[in-house]
């Protein structure tokens, strides 16, 4: 019983972190209609910024969020404006050119990190990295709990932004039907550029939250890119609520799978769920949530 509860707690906490990575991806996939294979690399970028801020300036990773978000937002805006957007109207043999562009961008980001920081593993040691709190015999990792709470706050904020503001509504309209949105007078070009920045900014927050829990090296990204698109497909394209549940489901499935089936197949569990949803349940959780 204790094992079960502890597994549940670990799964939910890690799921919260996955969710925030997934929300960024779901926005990008929903609005731009591309698979952002550079998502993990953007996360890595934000982790390095956080690491530099902590190591050289002594800025706490949680405060660093306020710095990484704008930096990453502007970098992503630049990527989107100068590298992805120009491909939209272009005639090419394969419609997947934008996806391949994100592969190229990801490669450049990884290699830049490798040139600047070398392949060494980096980590931050703050006063709370080794802390945890307890409820009876069940332990809650402190940085994971903080990450979970911040994820929830950010998700609620994003949800309000998407439902209550004009820009947010435009983002949602573009995600649902680009041509209809354009007919309604929405500048879909601007919205797509903005969305890439917004999605990446969420990713940046996730990076700052992840660093105290995990460690950092240039190739850290792909692991999380895969998790992000599993969540996106699970939750349904462009659905924030779906992504939250998608993240939690993935976190729980992985943790329970690892506890009760096999630790070695931990990463395979998510992929199998993903493939099954993709093939047999297209649309994912969005079918139920509709948002």
């Amino acid at each position: 019983m204790e094992t079960f509860v502890q597994t549940l707690v670990s799964g939910i906490l890690i799921g919260g972190l996955y969710a925030i990575i997934g929300i960024g991806m779901t926005l990008i996939m929903g609005v731009l209609n591309i698979i952002n294979l550079a998502h993990g690399q953007i996360l890595m970028l934000s982790m390095y910024i956080t690491w530099v801020l902590w190591t050289y300036f002594g800025i706490d990773p949680y405060i660093a969020i306020f710095i990484t978000i704008p930096i990453v937002f502007f970098i992503a805006e630049g990527i989107s404006k100068f590298l992805l957007h120009p491909l939209m109207g272009k005639d090419s043999i394969l419609p997947e050119n934008q996806v391949l562009m994100t592969v190229g961008i990801g490669m450049v980001l990884v290699e830049l990190a490798r040139v600047i920081f070398s392949s060494d593993y980096k980590s931050v040691q703050t006063s709370y990295t080794n802390k945890s709190w307890y409820l009876g015999t069940i332990s809650f990792n402190t940085p994971l709990t903080i990450a979970f709470i911040i994820s929830i706050i950010m998700t609620v904020g994003l949800f309000l932004f998407l439902t209550k503001t004009d820009t947010g509504r435009s983002v949602r309209a573009t995600a649902q039907d680009k041509s209809a949105a354009a007919l309604m007078g929405i500048s879909t070009g601007k919205i797509t550029v903005l969305t890439y920045g917004l999605g990446s900014a969420l990713d940046a927050a996730a990076g700052s939250l992840l660093l105290p829990i995990y460690y950092l090296y240039p190739d850290v990204g792909p692991l999380f890119t895969v998790k992000a698109f599993v969540i996106t497909i699970l939750g349904g394209l462009g659905s924030t609520v779906g992504a939250i549940f998608g993240g939690l489901i993935l976190g729980l499935a992985e943790t329970f799978g690892a506890t009760y089936i096999s630790m070695g197949y931990r990463d395979a569990i998510g992929l199998i769920i993903f493939l099954l949803v993709l093939v047999f349940f297209p649309g994912g959780l969005k079918r139920f949530t509709k948002v």
């Binding site: 590298l83 120009p86 562009m101 592969v103 190229g104 961008i105 490669m107 450049v108 490798r114």
Partner: peptide, 13 residues
């Protein structure tokens, strides 16, 4: 790998 990655970006563009 950096040069190769950059080449990919420029080529697609």
């Amino acid at each position: 790998s950096l040069v190769f990655g950059a080449l990919v970006v420029v080529m697609i563009l």
